[in-house]
């Protein structure tokens, strides 16, 4: 069976894009105090799967972020530092 007949994991999908990932994260979210975060929603709705729930703790990695802005608007603004990557870094779409 070809790998194309099974669902891809998010990493396999993101790997198809062109990236120039900044060494500095452009989004930061506190790991210590997760009160008030919409954890399940972040884990399911971030299109790049940057948020992972392990038990009831959220883990975040900015590398695959496609800069959609969803997490910014569903997280209390004092719980997230959200900016665009600078210098043209991040994802570069060729098709879409």
């Amino acid at each position: 069976m070809s790998t194309l007949e099974k669902p891809f994991k998010i990493e396999d999908l993101l790997q198809r894009n062109i990236w120039d990932v900044d060494e500095e994260p452009h989004i930061e979210i506190p790991l210590d105090d997760q009160e008030g975060l919409k954890k399940k929603a972040l884990a399911l709705l971030c299109p790049a799967g940057c948020y992972t729930l392990i038990g009831d703790r959220l883990i975040f990695s900015y590398e695959g972020c496609v800069e959609c802005g969803l997490c910014r608007i569903i997280t209390p603004s004092d719980k997230i530092r959200w900016t665009y990557p600078r210098s043209g870094k991040g994802v570069t779409y060729r098709y879409t």
Binding site: T3, L4, Q15, R16, I18, W19, V21, T92, R94
Partner: peptide, 23 residues
């Protein structure tokens, strides 16, 4: 070439470098 954009073709198992932009 942006090596992050170089990947395997799942059908042929070879590297796809086509259209890879540079950095």
């Amino acid at each position: 070439p942006n090596t992050q954009a170089v990947r395997f073709d799942p059908k042929t198992g070879t590297l796809i470098r086509q259209g890879v932009p540079a950095i």
